[in-house]
Computed example of a mutant assay.
Amino acid sequence: MNFFRRILAFTFIIIFIVVTLTSPSPKAITTETNKISRTPIRAGVLLYFFEDSYLLLLKKNLEDIQKENPDKIEFTFFDGKANPAIQYEIINNMINDNFDLLLLNIFEAKENTLQEIINKAKQKSLPLIIFISTIPNIDIVKTYSKLAFIPADTKEPAILEGKIIADAWNENKKAIDKNGDNILQYIMLKGKTDSVLSNSRTKYSVESINTLGIQTEELATVSCNWSRQIAKESTRSLFIRFGNKIEAIIANNDILALGAIDALQGLGYNKGNKLKTIPVVGIDALPEAQELIKKGYMLGSVFHDPSTMADAIYNIGLNLVSGKSITSGTDYKIDPSGVIVNINFKEYTIKTLSEISQ
C-alpha cells in the first residue's frame, strides 16, 4: 500500500514539473500580445533641457501624477541639455534599457533622425510619444501604429499673442499709439534665427495683428537664443535707441518677455504707472509672468497648461501600452492623420483670468 502511495506521489511531482516547464512565461505572453503586463509601467522621459522653465513645470506635473498613481506609472527623466547629439545618444540607450514606454521631447528633430528613432522603436514594438516637437514630415509619424504625436503648435499661440496686442490697441489705442500715426511700432524678441518654432511665432503674431485691421511697423527684431539675460540686454539697448517710439514688445516666449520686463523696470517703466508702461506679450504663461500680468506690469501671455499636457502624456501613454486607441477614454481630439493630438491654448490676460481658473 505504501509502495502505491509513493508511486502516486512521484507521478504528481513529475506532472507538476512538466506543466511548469512547458507553460509560457509572463514575458512570452507579453511578447505575443504586444501588451505590457507588469506594473508599474516604466516610462523613460527625455526632456529637451532641464533648465527650460516650462519643461520644469511639466516635469513636476508628471512627478505629481506618479505620486498619485505609484502602482501604474514610474517615470525616469533624462536631460537632453539642449544638445541634439546628447539627446540621440540618450534615446538609443533608452530604447535598449527595457522601458515599456518612451516619451520624447526632441523639439526640432531632422527628418532622417526622427525616422531612425521611430524605426528603432518599431523594431522593439515600443510605444512612443513625441511631444512639444515640430513635425518635419507628417508621413513619418504615420508609419508606426504605436506612436502618438503632441506637436509644438507653431501657429495658434502666435495668433493668440497677436490678438492680445490687437485687443489692447482697440480698447486703449490712445495710450498705446504714442505718436498718433495709427501704426503700431514694435520690437520683436526671437528665440533663435534658425528655429522653425521661433520663425513661425514671429511671423504669425504680426500677421494676426494685421489681420485684425492694425497696421504695424517693425522697429527691430533681435535673436535672443531663448535667453532671459540676452532679452534684457537687447531690450535695454533698443530702448536707448528708440525710446518712446516703442509701442509694444512681442516675445517668442515668456522667458524673453520676462527679460524685456526686467529691462523696462530697470529704466523706470512697467511698474504700475500706465503712462510709463509698454505692452509686453509672451507665450507659455509661466507663473512669474502670470504674477506680472495680474499686477498690470505685463499685458498678457498664451496659456499652455503644463498640467493639461502632463495628463495628456500620461493618459495617451497608458492607452498605447495597453493596446487601446490613442484617445480611448479621453476628450482629446485627434487630427485626420490618426496620430496627432493637439492641446488647446488660451489667452492669459487680466480679462481672461476667470475663464482659465474654471
Results as ranks from 00 to 15, higher is better:
S234P: 02
I209E: 06
K190T: 05
A310K: 10
I187H: 10
G80T: 05
T352C: 06
K67P: 06
L56F: 10
P24M: 10
I334G: 12
G213S: 00
E218Y: 00
F50I: 07
I73C: 07
N170C: 04
S133K: 11
R6N: 10
F131E: 03
I214H: 05
N182F: 07
I138N: 02
K346D: 15
Y204Q: 07
S195Y: 08
V280R: 07
Y269L: 15
N342K: 14
G272W: 11
P84M: 00
K232E: 03
Y314E: 03
D331Y: 12
I240A: 03
D254G: 10
D100Y: 10
F77H: 05
G282V: 12
F77Q: 06
Y348V: 11
A248H: 11
A257P: 10
R38C: 05
Y48M: 10
L292K: 15
P279T: 11
P336M: 01
A310D: 00
N225E: 15
E74M: 11
P287I: 06
A175V: 12
S307M: 04
A263V: 12
P84L: 01
T11R: 03
T235G: 14
K163P: 01
K178M: 06
F77C: 08
T202G: 07
F12P: 05
T33I: 13
L21R: 08
D71K: 13
R5H: 09
N34A: 07
A263L: 12
D167G: 06
S328M: 09
D305H: 12
I106W: 08
D181T: 12
G282W: 07
K190V: 08
M1G: 09
L101R: 02
S125A: 08
G243V: 11
T211R: 13
I135M: 02
L267A: 03
K59L: 04
T33P: 05
G272T: 13
S234Y: 01
D194W: 07
A312K: 09
L58D: 00
I250V: 12
V196A: 14
D194K: 12
Q229P: 00
N105T: 10
P40T: 04
A148W: 05
I91H: 01
A257F: 10
G282H: 11
T11L: 08
S145K: 15
T134L: 01
A148K: 07
V339A: 11
W226E: 15
P127I: 10
D52N: 15
A85M: 10
V302C: 01
N98S: 15
F49H: 05
V341Q: 08
I7P: 06
V45A: 12
G180T: 06
K178S: 09
N170H: 13
N2I: 14
F49G: 00
G44C: 12
V341R: 06
A251S: 15
P336A: 00
